[in-house]
């Protein structure tokens, strides 16, 4: 279980996050929404240990993890998948997955599962990751995270730069993954698709939590669209 309380963080002296709190339980998907520049990626990177928080608490299964390095957090079961489908381009698909595993046995067992879910990766198993399409690289990045058996998975914009057709299978994969007892935190722009499969959601605005609730309630909330699109009084279609 991941618990964040009154988190403040930023780059240098520039504050980005102000008083952010959240909690995710095993088996649950929490969706983080917000306009560009609201601090979503900063939130994930701070929890993952890339940025030291200036105040607040981050607890993983009750233990404080604020200020720990990203490497050590992976060992404790907290895994971040960065945005932009980042894999290691000069390594093969096989090696990319292998690097994610925490033990040889994990690698052997879980790799097969990944390849069953994403058959295209089996097809390109010996190809260099640089020769994959954006969507395939995203599958690979998720596969690499999957074999590390995280208890908390954080995923920054899994749909970024990916062909529309590939987004549902990727989000479904995350849904199934969560159902098996992993706590999943997703930042996503495609709020339509993402809200449909999330359990709970929160909206960040200028580094603060503007709205939070169940995914179902937020879907119906007009304010989500307003904040997301930035204008309170106009729907784009109405303007025209």
């Amino acid at each position: 279980m991941l618990e964040v309380r009154s988190l403040h963080a930023g780059y240098g002296r520039v504050p980005v996050l102000r008083d952010v709190s959240l909690q995710i339980n095993p088996g649950e998907i929490l969706l983080v929404l917000g306009p560009n520049g609201a601090g979503k990626s900063t939130l994930l990177r701070t929890i993952a240990g890339f940025i030291a928080p200036s105040a607040g608490e981050i607890r993983l299964d009750g233990q404080s993890i604020a200020g720990r390095s990203p490497e050590s957090l992976v060992k404790r079961g907290l895994r971040l998948v960065l945005d932009g489908h980042r894999v290691f381009p000069e390594l093969t698909v096989a090696d990319n997955i292998r690097l994610g595993a925490r033990s040889k046995r994990d690698a052997a067992q879980l790799t097969d599962q990944v390849l069953d879910i994403f058959p295209i990766l089996r097809e390109k198993y010996r190809a260099h990751a640089r020769d994959l399409s954006g969507g395939q690289q995203q599958m690979l990045a998720l596969g690499q995270a999957f074999v590390s058996r995280p208890s908390v998975l954080m995923c920054d914009e899994p749909s970024l730069g990916i062909a529309q057709a590939l987004i549902p299978p990727i989000l479904n994969f995350l849904r199934n993954w969560a159902s098996n007892g992993t706590a999943v935190l997703i930042v996503e722009q495609q709020i339509g698709v993402a809200l449909a499969m999330a359990d709970r959601a929160m909206v960040l605005e200028r580094g603060q939590v503007a709205l939070a609730g169940t995914a179902a309630s937020l879907r119906l909330d007009r304010r989500v669209q307003e904040i997301y699109l930035g204008f309170g009084d106009t729907d784009p279609a109405n303007v025209a």
Binding site: A48, F50, E71, V74, V81, L82, V87, F88, G100
Partner: peptide, 26 residues
Amino acid sequence: SRTQTGLAMSALSQDLDAARAAGIQV
């Protein structure tokens, strides 16, 4: 290209942040 340690070291040179996110002991 063949050892786990060597692969991790190559990964380091290709994308440092992604390597740290993957738990590689930088």
